[in-house]
């Protein structure tokens, strides 16, 4: 079951593509964005630049972005750690790409698809969950729901909408 909006988001600690561990508890941030994503899903790829642009645009306001790949890389080798490392190396990623090999973090968040976006406030409370914006095929949407949620959280207000239907490829669970 998805953690309810207004509850503390599940804690986690995961390694990025360089082996550096990232934890929700590390550091102080006015907001944190957790995005479940992957390498092989067309929806995740279509939204990637918009999410990356958001990470760049909100970095000077102290917002932390964390991308997490939870897919089963045994059956889906394009989501292997090596493939994640290649992407980060070949592309200009402004956010760490974390490997959830056990899939425990995806289960804790009840992540369903890629991409699935969660926005946490400075206390680690879940304030938004859903899609980056309303249309994967329209880059001009610019991750408007995600940006709106961040603007609200940074202003101490409740996002509107606070929840949207995540759209994408299903998380590839291990058998």
């Amino acid at each position: 079951m998805t953690p309810p909006l207004g509850d503390k988001a599940p804690a986690f600690a995961l390694p990025d593509t360089e082996g550096v561990e990232h934890s929700l508890a590390n550091g102080t941030f006015p907001a944190t964005v957790v995005v479940f994503t992957c390498n092989h899903c067309p929806y995740a790829l279509a939204w990637h630049d918009r999410i990356a642009d958001s990470a760049r645009d909100y970095s000077d306001r102290g917002v932390r972005f964390l991308a997490i790949n939870s897919n089963d890389s045994e059956r889906y080798p394009r989501d292997s750690l090596e493939a994640m490392q290649r992407r980060v190396r070949d592309e200009d990623w402004p956010l760490p790409y974390l490997h959830d090999e056990s899939q425990e973090v995806a289960r804790a968040y009840d992540a369903r698809v890629t991409p699935d976006v969660f926005v946490l406030d400075g206390d680690g409370t879940l304030r938004y969950r859903g899609a980056p914006d309303s249309d994967y095929s329209d880059p001009t949407q610019g991750a408007a729901w995600l940006r709106g949620a961040l603007d609200a959280v940074l202003s101490g207000e409740a996002p509107d909408p606070a929840e949207t239907e995540p759209v994408g490829c299903s998380i590839k669970w291990k058998p």
Partner: peptide
Amino acid sequence: VYHTRDGRVSP
């Protein structure tokens, strides 16, 4: 992963 004629990624 498909690409539309204008280059966008599409399912």
